[in-house]
Design a protein around this nucleic acid. Structure first.
Length: 637
RNA sequence: GCUGGCGUAGCUCAGUUGGUAGAGCAGCUGAUUUGUAAUCAGCAGGUCGUAGGUUCGAGUCCUAUUGCCAGCUCCA
């Protein structure tokens, strides 16, 4: 007999009893809901025998790991359905992802929406039949034989990779469908309830464009039909937040066919942008930065010197002037180098923090363009910090704090990633080690958790990236801090030290918004277009009830404009309900309704876009309230 | 760039087996002068992404091209 502790409740079982059987002994409901087990903190398959005293947790769909097993099983059900419809199908990989699962198939023809419906119907059949998933293990050699017999070349390739580890290879079998898989899985297909295939696209085997393109089918499943409906509803809601749609609707920005990847900023978008830039300038001035602006077109020779030509020329636009070769800047750094070199520097001048809102152009692949999130021309809120080696850490920490303070203003969550030396890079191992160690040390001092992306650094140095999470759960790289020992070398930057000798400064590239364009896109989706009052293009709209109040409305507007508020009047001959509806749809923070009563009393009736009717007040009182909120950058409107 | 889907009025979309385009909203005009999310009526608006081809005839079928969308890849 063995003792198993379940949420602190200790029970005795026969040694060798499986996790699933333990779940069953507790109740049929739990058995049906069970997705996997957690044995002494380790996730295990439900079929795992328990042979010693332990602590056990039965994982269900409500647990992250359970959800994964649930979705992964659904992906196997999809594969079984595909095998029935396409007996010669090749199977690559089919993991659970953040929301649902996918499976990559090698099929004789491309799938149509009609096929998707058929696969879905077949999956429902398989679920109805409640086919048990059986787990078995083979030696690597036998595993390869089995998959070769099944004509599964991708699986053979996967097993060959695992073979070296000398472990047994596990499989799961449902009827005639056998799949290589580590698990864990549900006990049978009937435990999966509501299923929906959501998308079908191409994807390369091992994500390499040189390999064959497979067909990736995405789907999601839930234990209850209502949960599936809720999920689909949430997706619909998220779509309404799409910055491309809101951008057009609110007159913020747009992209036209005439300039793929080159966005236009419309009047309201320009106000938003200018507010962000103003905030940015104020903060940078406070933190000891000096703003510069460098030219957009510079000679090709400069880009050879900087190393961009060798490492980045495929993404660069070029032009000829008077027969000479020039390039349009894809980054601001070389210009910054020239500015640093304008005069001799003393160690007393350092750090020199040169900031630049620099418009850069990069030739991105056409298929990667996405609204303002990914464009071919964008403004980096760049800065290059030149410093002595012993200033490196405090400068990095200073930038990390500055970034943190910016993101807090918008209420953003972010995660940190450290990217190390890529294959195609400049500099010596020693320099890279020094730079990477400096970043790691700063990260440790800063104390926030971070992930490491091996080989994902810039060609001139390692970096710390700041990833913001958007309303759809996608993460976008915004802020980045990149340490650079190369550029100062290449441009022969120097400063005179305390010892009177020439020294090489260290340089830091950094951005906070990353790209103003991308940041505005994320903001637009984050707020669903309802920007806090300090950013709102129109902060208040005066809605006269009839033409008789127009004169009074203009007086109120003049007063508020005078006070620094962005105010418009809806002068149209429409009913008040209509004007309110329009202002609401335009997400204007405050509506000021003026009718007979307000005109006589010299007041305005204030309506908040979220709060509704806020009562009557004098224009001055409203102005004070609104301007206080602007100043506080509050998001309470 | 690759794979697949799509491209009709400013926006959202109809358009039947190929027989030379239609609605709602927005716009304009008129009436209405209105109290917290859509007043009524009229008018105007499109060489159906572009270029070829098939056909007596193409928004509809074929080819190419371009843009958009989803994903791969890439990255701020």
């Amino acid at each position: 007999m063995i003792k198993v502790s379940l949420k602190g409740d200790v029970k005795e079982f026969e040694s060798g009893i499986t996790v699933a059987e333990i779940a069953k002994s507790i109740g049929a409901g739990l058995y049906k809901a069970a997705c996997a087990g957690k044995l002494d903190g380790k996730v295990v398959d439900l079929r795992t025998p328990v042979t010693k005293d332990c602590e056990l947790q039965i994982l269900t769909f409500d647990d992250a790991e359970g959800k994964k097993a649930y979705w992964h099983t659904t992906s196997h059900i999809m594969a079984q359905a595909v095998k029935k419809l396409f007996p010669t199908a090749g199977f690559a990989i089919g993991p659970a992802i953040e929301n649902g699962f996918y499976y990559d198939f090698d099929l004789p023809r491309t799938l149509t929406p009609d096929d998707m419906a058929k696969i879905e119907a077949e999956m429902k059949e398989i679920i109805k039949k409640d086919i048990p998933l059986e787990r078995f293990e083979l030696d690597p050699k036998d595993a390869i034989d089995l998959m070769e017999k099944e004509h599964q070349k991708y699986k053979v390739e996967l097993i060959q990779e695992h073979a070296g580890k000398g472990e047994k290879i596990s499989f799961y079998k449902q009827d005639d469908y056998i799949d290589l898989c580590a698990g864990p899985h549900l006990m049978s297909t009937g435990h999966v309830k509501a299923v929906k295939l959501t998308n079908c696209t191409g994807a390369y085997w091992r994500a390499d464009a040189k390999n064959k393109m497979l067909q990736r089918v995405y789907g999601i499943s839930f234990p209850k039909a209502s949960q599936l409906e809720e999920y689909l509803h949430m997706i619909e809601e998220a779509k309404k937040r799409d910055h491309r749609k809101i951008g057009r609707d609110l007159d913020l920005f747009d992209i036209y066919e005439e300039g793929p990847g080159f966005p236009f900023f419309l009047p309201h978008g320009m106000i938003l942008r200018n507010q962000l830039e103003q905030f940015w300038r104020e903060e940078h001035t406070k933190h000891g930065y000096e703003e510069i602006r460098t030219p957009m077109i510079l000679s090709e020779e400069l880009w050879h010197r900087s190393g961009h030509w060798d490492h980045y020329k495929d993404n660069m636009y070029t032009t000829k002037i008077d027969g000479q070769d020039y390039a349009i800047k894809p980054m601001n750094c070389p210009g910054g180098m020239l500015v640093y070199k304008r005069k001799p520097h003393s160690y007393r001048d350092l750090p020199e923090r040169l900031a630049e809102l620099g418009l850069v152009h990069r030739h991105e692949l056409s298929g990667t363009l996405h609204g303002l999130m990914r464009v071919r021309c964008f403004t980096q809120d760049d800065a290059h910090i030149f410093m002595t080696p012993d200033q490196v850490e405090s400068e990095i920490l200073g930038v990390m704090n500055l970034i943190d303070s910016f993101y807090k203003v918008f209420g953003f969550e972010y995660s940190l990633e450290l990217s190390t030396r890529p294959k195609n890079s400049m500099g010596t191992d020693e320099q890279w080690k020094m730079a990477t160690d400096a970043l790691i040390h700063a990260l440790k001092t800063n104390g926030k958790p971070y992930e490491i992306n091996e080989g994902d650094g810039a060609f001139y140095g390692p970096k710390i990236d700041f990833h913001l999470r958007d309303s759809l759960g996608r993460t976008w790289q915004c802020g980045t801090i990149q340490l650079d020992f190369q550029m100062p070398e290449r441009f022969e930057l120097t400063y005179t030290g305390e010892d009177g000798e020439k020294h090489r400064p260290v340089m830091l590239h950094r951005v906070i918004f990353g790209s103003i364009e991308r940041f505005i896109a994320i903001l637009t989706e984050h707020y669903a277009g309802a920007f806090p009052i300090w950013l709102a293009p129109v902060q208040a709209k005066i809605l006269p009830i009839s033409d008789a109040m127009l004169e009074y409305a203009k007086k109120v507007q003049a007063k508020l404009l005078e006070g620094g508020l962005r105010v418009e009047i809806d002068t149209r001959n429409e009913k008040i309900g209509y004007k309110i509806r329009e202002a609401q749809l335009q997400k204007i923070p405050y509506m000021l309704i003026v009718g007979e009563k307000e005109m006589q009393n010299g007041t305005v009736s204030v309506r908040g876009r979220k709060a509704g009717d806020l009562g009557v007040m004098a224009p001055d009182a409203f102005l004070t309230k609104a301007m206080d909120e602007v100043k506080a950058k509050s998001n309470d409107q």
